[in-house]
Design a protein around this nucleic acid. Sequence first.
DNA 1: GCTTCGATATATCGATATGATATATATCGC
DNA 2: GCGATATATATCATATCGATATATCGAAGC
Lengths: 183, 183
Amino acid sequence: MDVKTICLGVLSLGDATGYEIRKTFEDGPFSHFFDASYGSIYPALGKLLADGLVTLSDAEPSGRSDKKVYSLTDAGHAALRAALAEQPGRDRVRSEYLVHLFFAHLMDPRDACRVFDDYLAHFERMVADCPCDEDPADMPPGQRIVHGFGTRFYESLAAFMREQRDAFIQEMNQAGQDTEAAE
Amino acid sequence: MDVKTICLGVLSLGDATGYEIRKTFEDGPFSHFFDASYGSIYPALGKLLADGLVTLSDAEPSGRSDKKVYSLTDAGHAALRAALAEQPGRDRVRSEYLVHLFFAHLMDPRDACRVFDDYLAHFERMVADCPCDEDPADMPPGQRIVHGFGTRFYESLAAFMREQRDAFIQEMNQAGQDTEAAE
DNA sequence: GCTTCGATATATCGATATGATATATATCGC
DNA sequence: GCGATATATATCATATCGATATATCGAAGC
């Protein structure tokens, strides 16, 4: 699944500019499990336009002149459904935080503790301000599942890190003192 | 953090070929939170070699002639520590499964249920065969945290999906019958 | 009314990464 | 010895990232 397909998906939720599509990945309902940069969104929209899968809506007179609001065409809707009929590819995750924690024994213990606390704070922030302007009960079942999945994800891992925190901090500090004593 | 840095990290665990580094991302301890393909690993090793951060170990006579076993140099170890002193970048996730589920209302209900069950099976498989040939108690604290994090992640989300399964399947089938009745 | 600043918006580009493919050797069961 | 699978290196077209450039809009402050 490339950025073109996910752009079709975002547009199926309503007309949008390239900028608004980007914001969907940053803040919106996709932010937990998808991302794409301007450098891929704008070329993708260009190709979709050339292929007739999206069109430019009539610009409202209120907006600025160069603003481009994209809409899904019937062909675009069909292309989205066709893409969803394919087998999904495996999840891809890249967490630099976990890489850092994995190699905590090579770090300054204070840095390692800071990374731990930053990561925990990240999960707690995600639990606190879940970007849900809509009542989950009003969502289609699939969206409700995805929303619940995200919530459970952040809650479980925040809880795990809170459980482990004291032991980790203590072990790190212990290791730091051992190193100092050896010097 | 680019592939060069993570290669240094893998090599800090022991000498390895490019192929073995790839396998670390596929099967090994990094498989849950990092990935990199041959197309990035081999160029990365080439640059690291040119920069003196890794060297080629003496090939054992038992091995094949073109095999290249890489080792971390002191400079490479220092570069790894320096990279770990930097602030980690934010996590990146791309889950096509969640995209599919999010748009389940646009899918054939049977396909949507299959995607759900595939995803659940994936999490259950991850819980069952955790790639841990080492006793967590023997790991450095950071690695133990990362290992526990992965375990908790898979367990929590498998549990969540098991909880939600019946309701989801039923709602999907209901939606499917409504569509058929309307036709 | 003017200015400043942050949000909105489009676009491009070098560097990096993916995913598929080609090629070849080693190992193991049969 | 034979075929299948695992080991191993390497490349390339395509896709993507991340940073940057540019410009307009709206609201707040004065």
